[in-house]
Design a protein around this nucleic acid. Structure first.
Lengths: 347, 347
DNA sequence: CTGAAAGCGCTTACAG
DNA sequence: CTGAAAGCGCTTACAG
């Protein structure tokens, strides 16, 4: 029953949605009160708050606008790295969700026709922060983000650093401990498959390998070093090369698990048993590493944790908190499985 | 030089950004004019437009608010499927980007503390559409999305369908052709590893397998059927069971590549050579399938294409276009590699 | 082609 | 605890 004389102003229901003012009217309170409830501010009586909350819910109220600074972290990929990218994304998402942020997946590996460059589109969207995965960002891109005050963290970046905060893992120490493991088992003729030359983390792994030999007083034999890509095919091809030498290595350290899987296949093709005739060490500890035959001894990169750490740093940056260090390196433990053993005495 | 008497109102530069009014002032035009330029409406002279555009650019103008309906597709995962999820995401992203849409990655596999249920948070964000990956959505969740007019497409959903448009692949025909391939090679004692019983696509694969036998007049032997999970471990365990039988199968059809990799390992442990002593067929054609030893013969699911198709359908739905069919099935070609061969005559 | 005026959907600062 | 008033950052409808 309407009270006599009570005005019933007609709200234009734009797009069929109720406005804050409508809710206020229905609740018999003012707009500021509804606004306070909506924004979880205090200064609203418990009954009023509850009544307004109910109305808001029942009428499916949604704000008409969102702040342009959207609670989103954008994760930019230039190369898709299948299960690795997924692990990183999982880590980022977990932290982001805990802070009420959403995660946008950006594939910058190819520019789409008619699209602005990914960075321009990204800037337009005004995310709270950006995380680049594996391949970093150009100095110009970093500058643009800085100018736009969009915080950026590089995850395991390749190449130069332009003072962008970064999260990586201890590539050098990882390769060092993988190599030491082989040395301790008694190997002396150890081959190494390195990664892309322009890739700093690949370089760090190679240096860690060399450092371990050096430290153990084992002379470095360039003949046993092969440079390749982070792929199965590369591991297969270079593994075959190394194993076809007159004096083949008794162990091979790889810079990537895919490579190591290629080496496992090379050994198979050469009729060599792993680990009896050849020990193999990988890098990354992807899921498949525990399913190879034998399961792969490898250096673990904690991808989900790296994603989570990167997310925490961007989120902090967005809050005006400078990171305590410009580069965070997570630990790379050696996971010993079945692909390593002492060298056979006959070889 | 300032004109005498020209007022210089002080704009409060909130958050350091210029407002539309500031730009209008600088351009010596009114707000409506700037608004028109901004929204690419006509009714603005070319010179004026150009001047305003320049000012907008030079001052890095950004709108303070965004329409709540954001050009975003949200991809919801309940289980992470490593490289498969990544492929799907790639397909979705490519199509979305082509339509100026962004892709948000939602991990609904566990609810985070203090967070609303993922669906509530999602509804608040008002994406243009939602794609669920592999595990679908509850009827309540589907209803909520329908009520909120947020279009939904289920990618390869498990279980019931609640009239949600879906994109899948031809599971039944895929398993049929994988099995036929073995029959044509001469196999008769063929084992099968099925997937989770509640999973409709797993069921379709099992049925395709049975249909192939049936059609070829090969009697079905339940003893050679094992029910398991889509994991390496499951494949290893059940493969071992099957291969330990007094009359082991000469071939095994798997419902998943990971399972098939487990079977490969089981064969190895049993001292059986693949494909001479045992043929193995997988399902999915994940990247690793070509790196096993021998490379896996498998039924390909075109994940990126499925993601792309799902994206096209939600985008259409968001545009008010009903899909031409409620379920789209993409083709599942058989990829013949090295893990299948005629059965050895001695076995 | 342009802009004064009104309006929308909020929020803020403050008086009571 | 509540809300009238002012204000922000836009857009709309229309007069010129």
């Amino acid at each position: 029953v309407l009270e006599a004389g009570h005005p019933t102003p007609q709200r234009k229901a734009r797009s069929g949605r109720v406005s804050l003012a409508t809710i206020a009217e229905l609740a018999g309170v003012s707009s500021p009160t509804v606004s306070k409830v909506l924004n979880r501010r205090d200064g609203v009586g418990p009954d009023t708050r509850q009544r307004v909350e109910e109305l808001l819910r029942d009428h499916g109220y949604r704000r008409a606008h969102l702040d342009a600074r959207v609670p989103t972290l954008e994760v930019v990929h230039h190369h898709m790295l299948s299960s690795i990218s997924m692990e990183i994304l999982r880590g980022v998402t977990e932290v982001a969700a805990g802070h009420g942020h959403t995660v946008t997946f950006v594939d910058a590996s190819h520019e789409f026709t008619g699209q602005a460059r990914w960075i321009e589109a990204l800037v337009q969207r005004r995310p709270a922060g950006v995380i680049t995965v594996v391949s970093g960002v150009s100095p110009q891109e970093a500058d643009l983000l800085a100018k736009e005050q969009i915080p950026l963290v590089a995850l395991d970046p390749v190449g130069e650093m332009y003072a962008v905060p970064a999260v990586g893992s201890s590539n050098w120490s990882g390769a060092l401990s993988g190599t030491r493991h082989l040395l301790e088992l008694g190997h002396r003729r150890i081959g190494v498959l390195s990664g892309p030359v322009r890739d700093l983390s690949a370089r760090a792994r190679l240096d860690g390998f060399r450092a371990a030999l050096d430290y153990a007083g084992v002379p470095y034999n360039v003949q046993l070093e092969r440079n390749g890509a982070f792929t199965f095919e590369s591991g297969l091809e270079l593994g075959l090369q190394l194993l076809s030498r007159p004096e083949p290595p008794t162990a091979i350290v790889c810079s990537d698990d895919l490579q190591a899987m290629g080496v496992l296949e090379a050994a198979r093709q050469k009729g060599l048993r792993v680990p009896q005739d050849l020990s193999v060490v990988g890098f990354d500890d992807i899921e498949q590493a525990s399913w190879t035959s034998p399961p792969l001894t490898t250096v673990r990169q904690p991808f989900a944790e790296m994603g989570a750490a990167a997310a925490r740093i961007v989120l902090g940056l967005a809050d005006g908190k400078a990171p305590t260090q410009s580069r965070l390196e997570l630990d790379t433990p050696l996971i010993v499985r079945g692909s390593t053993a002492p060298p056979s005495p006959t070889r």
